[in-house]
Design a protein around this nucleic acid. Sequence first.
DNA 1: AACCGCATCTTTGTATACAATTCTGGCGTA
DNA 2: TACGCCAGAATTGTATACAAAGATGCGGTT
Lengths: 237, 237
Amino acid sequence: MKPNSRDGARHAARPTLVYRKLRDLIVKGQLAPGTRLVETDVASRLSVSRTPVRGALQRLQQEGYILDSPSLQQSRPIVAPLTREDARELFYIVAEVEALAARHAADLPNAKRSALAGRLQRINDDFKKAATAKQPSHHRLWELDERFHRGYVEAGAGPRLLALHDAVKPQAERYERIYVSLLVSELGASIAEHNVIIRAIRAGDREAAQTAVQTNWRNAAERLGRVIDSLGERGQW
Amino acid sequence: MKPNSRDGARHAARPTLVYRKLRDLIVKGQLAPGTRLVETDVASRLSVSRTPVRGALQRLQQEGYILDSPSLQQSRPIVAPLTREDARELFYIVAEVEALAARHAADLPNAKRSALAGRLQRINDDFKKAATAKQPSHHRLWELDERFHRGYVEAGAGPRLLALHDAVKPQAERYERIYVSLLVSELGASIAEHNVIIRAIRAGDREAAQTAVQTNWRNAAERLGRVIDSLGERGQW
DNA sequence: AACCGCATCTTTGTATACAATTCTGGCGTA
DNA sequence: TACGCCAGAATTGTATACAAAGATGCGGTT
């Protein structure tokens, strides 16, 4: 029984596929915080052996998506819980990472910078339109916000910073996805903060760009904190 | 070698031992940049099977100590090269990570803050003494600088930020270890910058603390960049 | 009924066999 | 000589067998 006998199509490494699949399930909330992850279960569910699953679990653990129960000797991984404190710390980290990228984006040569600013402006305009629609689509709002931030990160970050961003950001997404519905009412603040970012990048003012992004994420952290307070934490019992 | 602070008195798992051993060899430069890491070689050299080695290599790769050749299908890991660009990006990342920790340290209650400031002051005084000795010990200088920074990071960082710091900082150490001998002449600047950090923490001024740490590391990046220019890069050919 | 001890089951850790892929070197041909 | 091709070696990828550690539950004793 060799599952790889006839699947010669796309060549993304298998452990990476397992990793992505699990990460996706965790980020989207399908794997609830606190869930035990059993190697053999995951393996049979995804039709691979334990070996690639093990690699994927190690990666996920290192990035913070799963934790080890402090039981000695053995590992016993569970999906990381979502707590108010963790959210706050995480958002403050994202703030610094993206702010550094924005700083570098503001240092780009003039032509690239104004092209970037234009792209961001258009995304933020769409964002505003989507936010003021009668029935705002959560998914669309989330996607536009994501694209906005990704825009300057990709433009300004080097390979290391980009890797760090890719590792950290999806964990913030875990929180955003759960609480997004309750944040819709405060979208006006986001739009205004985005505009400050755009202006700083267009002006090539690195300090202003860095600060504006920090402010945007720190404010988001505070908004999220209030929502978590009212809704409760998940996976902590 | 010093055991890591947060992994307690328990026997470390074997993959972790392999991971630490390899990381140590890389950080200390015993495993030269560019070196191929062959699973079976590492395994036999450390008297374990390929399984735990594989886990260790995956962790090292994810953290950036080793890279995969972009050759298709298979992995073929090599020790990450040391380049001027990488050093710069890395130091700017450390700058933000430690600066965020310093910000939080400056938010501590008064008693803890001044105790911390006192500890840092003593370390920096020792640093100054060691720097002005007739024959400055590189190892001692490096250790005191390390302790200085670790002081406020441990005081201010939460679990996530601390984990991030532990993952990123040793990579900066790779550069520091190689070029430390050429940086001794500029220690005066470091001492002065450290004092700015101490004053900001003692005053409880979060913005000043964050900025002071950023400045310290960005200046270090520039100093290091000049040294690399004159000495050349490693593992890149 | 509550509790303890022990056998068993579950789960993770390690080693190893085998498959798939990539690299190397030599040989023939132009 | 230069080039390309093929066979075999080296290396990584995957599956699986077995070992070790921890959890579970049953039956007996009080």
